[in-house]
Design a protein around this nucleic acid. Structure first.
Lengths: 412, 412
DNA sequence: CCGGTTTTTGTGGATTTCCACAAATTAACC
DNA sequence: GGTTAATTTGTGGAAATCCACAAAAACCGG
């Protein structure tokens, strides 16, 4: 094929026009997406599209489950690796018919995709080459869009930082700014922070951004990064169980980071869920607090992400301060500790573990590798030595808190 | 009988001498006690005494169990009412042989007792009259002792107040003062405060003092009063389970106040058990804190006396302060509360009660008058509405604390 | 007042806890 | 090194919890 026969020569006013042209050439419906699978353009005069394409056009983004399938099935990894068109077998589960795709490149980076739906025909090898050519031709247009988006993105990030640091005071002012940036209002939201093992590289940032953009579990209003942190403003859809939603999102995000990009070691915390924008700063501080605690109490609160689930740790900073200045003694704990030292026993740890496991005898015994009766014996011993009443939740709680607080202090 | 034949005429150098004289006249062992059953004097040249008397002389006070028997059996009440001698049948349980007793009066107040042990004889009516006369004669001598004791008592009380208010700084200085007042050293102690319904009357003060003086459950180093408070420095004998000892003492004190003097409505609190005198002030403050909490959380901590048993309430003042200045929100609690308001339900109370009863299903269901399954249902409801995980002690504790804290704030 | 939802109570059975007692093992102290 | 005390493990039966399912009863919005 020579460039003399290039069917995509000439000027195109818009990407829509270009999509139509490609569609004309290949006699198939065509969709153009950016690197994050957001719809950029699509060919209009098609008689047939599959459900996946319809959904993509309606919501202006590829449905997440479709993206997931394409990842699992290997199409997207292939597109990210090679500039060659890739044929995608149908995936009826997600309403995806047979299609051919190619990635759009700028230097070494993929900045978009062209999808061709093979409705009632199969592309010939020559047509596949044309498609490749189309991808090259699309590059500049897509890039312009990219630049515009990036500019906007920068302004949005600046706004986000102002919110995170509490530099915009009134609710109305915040609303005005957000509206100006086309950021939709949300009845409630929380700041989510992902913290990686090391400072983010450009490559990682792209991968993260990709994951976040393609996530549809819950709307993400704002996004920025800071050193090794990725900071989001997430808006749970239900007022009913927002925490559940956030937890689900975080776990799936972490799972995907691992699966697709082999990045482990992602910590995460999110602050309180609030309904007024002026609490963004607070939610951010809380998210950071969660991360700080996770560093100190790694084991205990591994599966905790939300500030609300931090439970008693929420006021540990206060308590510690109190403990340090005042004479905060817990004779019960001291007695147990001195007993442990003297008899090389593990009463404190036993009690702590017992509570860590929700006072469940079986679980605790397993965790400590002892017989349930041993546990019972030790607990009875604790009641005697520490003079605490195991039927009095109040006293038990106090001891538990003091144990954890001592740990916190030691690691402080 | 005329006063011409008064066998107790003349001067006596000491009460010992007088006791011997009475013993000579009545041909029986004689013991003289003050109003609080402390030994003042006893006749020396007796061939036989019963175990109760021996014990009294050895420890310079009547054993508590003997006093208890004499109260139960009616002797002491009788002596406190009438100036007539009273015959006491033997009480073998406490080693008490048959005896005759008479009270020593000053105006309308009993200031002491004379006990005559009927070893191998029974006093004749005439001898009973002599005994009555002896009581009259003893009055002045006993009174002198009383005055001296009161003077000393005043100085001791002054010292106690200095300790309670932290006006003596160094440990050595405190030790010196206590030694000068003949107050024995103790390895550990706590400040105990009894609070009565109204300001103490002279009469009540005497009764309280009587009870405290005759208590031998644990040594009381210092004693004073303040409005409706009686303040003690108590020294538990065992370092092992001092709290148990203190609790026992308090409960028996309250029981006796009720039984013997029909005084109910005695609140009590005691501070931490410390080993250094400079902590007396702290222990006192803690005791007062316990009483303050008991006023607000009457039901919940009815059976709590010790600061150590206050558990989480210990840091409630502090938390409340935080809550009031910062924005301390618990979305979980708020959701529950709003649900309760909307549906006229009792989820918050249910959870609170559940924890008050140590997460015991049966007990809680009884306390709330509902079926155990109802309780289970409500708890499940709570997990959904408040989005808290009932298998996570940490979150449960946080909610519990916030519930109690809200209560505390409301009553603050 | 009706129809659907929420709440309460009931039943039964598998599982767990609780308790008391005892044997076996370990630690501690002359 | 031997003896006592402390700790761990085992056994068995009564009691309590947990769970699923279902029938009442109460509540609510139209």
């Amino acid at each position: 094929m020579s460039h003399y026969t290039d069917p995509f020569r000439g000027e195109f006013d818009s990407l829509e026009e270009f999509a139509d042209r490609v569609s004309d050439v290949l006699q198939c419906p065509v969709t153009i997406e950016d690197a994050n699978h957001r719809l950029i353009a699509y060919s209009a005069h098609d008689d047939y599209t599959d459900p996946a394409r319809t959904a993509t056009i309606i919501s202006r983004r590829v449905p997440e489950k479709v993206i997931n399938s394409l990842w699992k099935q290997g199409t997207i990894p292939a597109l990210l690796k090679s500039r060659e068109p890739v044929r995608v077998p149908p995936i009826p589960d997600v309403g995806l018919g047979s299609r051919v795709a190619v990635s759009i490149w700028k230097n070494d980076e993929v900045i978009g995709f062209i999808w061709v739906l093979e409705t009632n025909r199969t592309l010939s090898p020559e047509e596949m080459e044309w498609l490749k050519l189309a991808a090259k031709t699309a590059k500049n247009k897509v890039l312009q869009l990219y630049m515009r988006k990036n500019k906007k993105e920068e302004r949005v990030q600046e706004l986000f930082w102002k919110l995170l640091t509490g530099h915009i005071a009134t609710e109305d002012e915040i609303r005005a700014h957000l509206a100006a940036m086309q950021i939709p209002a949300a009845p409630q939201f929380a700041v989510v922070v992902f913290r990686f093992a090391a400072d983010l590289t450009v490559e990682m940032e792209r991968q993260i951004s990709y994951l976040l953009q393609t996530t549809q579990q819950l709307p993400l209003l704002l996004y920025t990064t800071d050193g090794r942190d990725v900071i989001l403003l997430a808006a749970p859809k239900t007022t009913d169980q927002p925490l559940k939603e956030l937890n689900g999102f975080i776990e799936s995000f972490a799972a995907k980071m691992k699966e697709r990009f082999h990045i482990h070691d992602v910590q995460c915390g999110f602050g309180g869920v609030y309904g007024a924008y002026r609490f963004i700063e607070k939610s951010y501080r809380e998210a950071l607090a969660v991360l700080a605690f996770k560093e100190k109490f790694g084991d205990e609160i591994r599966s905790v992400y939300g500030y609300a689930q931090l439970g008693i740790y929420q006021f540990f900073d206060f308590l510690l301060e109190q403990k340090r200045q005042g004479e905060w003694a817990n004779p019960a704990l001291e007695k147990l500790q001195s007993y442990d030292r003297k008899h090389h026993s593990d009463l404190v740890k036993t009690f702590e573990t017992f509570f860590d496991h929700n006072e469940n005898v079986q679980e605790t015994a397993d965790a400590l590798n002892v017989h349930p009766n041993t546990l019972a014996y030790r607990l009875k011993r604790i009641t005697d030595i520490a003079e605490i009443d195991m039927t009095d939740m109040n006293q038990k709680i106090k001891l538990y808190i003091d144990i954890k607080l001592a740990k916190y202090e030691a690691r402080g």
